[in-house]
């Protein structure tokens, strides 16, 4: 009966998609971070980083997963915006005086704002690096691979704007951290995975993940800038 409409429009199914795409994006973060960390080797990283970038953009299985990833980001953002608009509409008259900090965390109440910051970041990030890697005219390295290393280093070492890019990058990683500090554990609750034995574990795992991953991401442009 309502099953078809449930799959498309139900509040709970929308949340399931949110949680599944969100967790998929979390695994992507780990893989992406792994590649970026090569950059911490400095100039020695040039050849290995470029070879890694080439592998990530040409290996068929990874290409297939990357399309799933683009779709997930777009869907997560779209679904998140739909949910947020519906949630706003559910309270047309606001409270004259409200004290939300008495019962919930700031991050949990600002997922859409934090997500929007991340979306803006992703768009900028992809036009700076992803677009150049795929369609840009960039020099080759000694092994004949596209020299993405050079692109990244020149970007963050730009004499006038480099510091601005680094600061923006770091700020966006802070936003990502707050998005995850609520989102990671929240997705388990959405998927129905609540158990008093494991709740604390999931929460702590989420906390470690949301501090460590954005922190390691943020260290890289800082390292490149001061190097």
């Amino acid at each position: 009966m309502e099953v078809k409409s449930a799959l498309l429009g139900s509040s709970i199914v929308k949340k399931y998609w949110m949680a599944l795409t969100g967790l998929f994006l979390c695994t992507f973060l780990v893989v992406h971070l792994g590649g970026n960390l090569i950059l911490l080797k400095g100039e020695d990283a040039r050849l290995s980083f470029n070879a890694y970038a080439k592998f990530m953009t040409t290996f068929p299985l990874i290409k297939a997963v990357s399309y799933l990833l683009y779709f997930s980001i777009l869907f997560h953002a779209f679904d998140g915006i739909v949910l947020t608009l519906q949630n706003r509409a559910a309270r047309p008259v606001k409270y004259y005086f409200n004290k939300p900090e008495a019962n919930s965390t700031w991050a949990s109440r600002n997922m859409a704002f934090l997500g929007t910051v991340i979306l803006i970041f992703i768009v900028g990030h992809m036009s700076n690096f992803w677009y150049k890697m795929h369609f840009g005219d960039i020099p080759m390295d000694a092994n004949g691979n596209k020299d993405l290393y050079e692109v990244v280093v020149t970007f963050f070492k730009d004499p006038s704007l480099g510091i601005v890019y680094v600061a923006f990058y770091v700020l966006c990683m802070v936003a990502l951290g707050f998005h995850l500090v609520h989102g990671f554990a929240s997705s388990f609750q959405t998927l129905g995975l609540y158990h008093k034995k494991y709740n604390a574990l999931i929460k702590n795992l989420g906390l470690v993940f949301s501090v460590l991953v954005p922190l390691l991401f943020a260290i890289i442009p800082i390292f490149i800038y001061i190097q």
Partner: peptide
């Protein structure tokens, strides 16, 4: 569960974001 959630959505309540405020209050 299908019917009650369907009715809940029809009534114009918002979607849960797991803020946990309800449990506290």
């Amino acid at each position: 569960v299908l019917k009650m959630v369907h009715q809940m959505d029809l009534e114009g309540f918002g979607n849960c974001t797991n803020t946990g405020a309800c449990e506290v209050e």
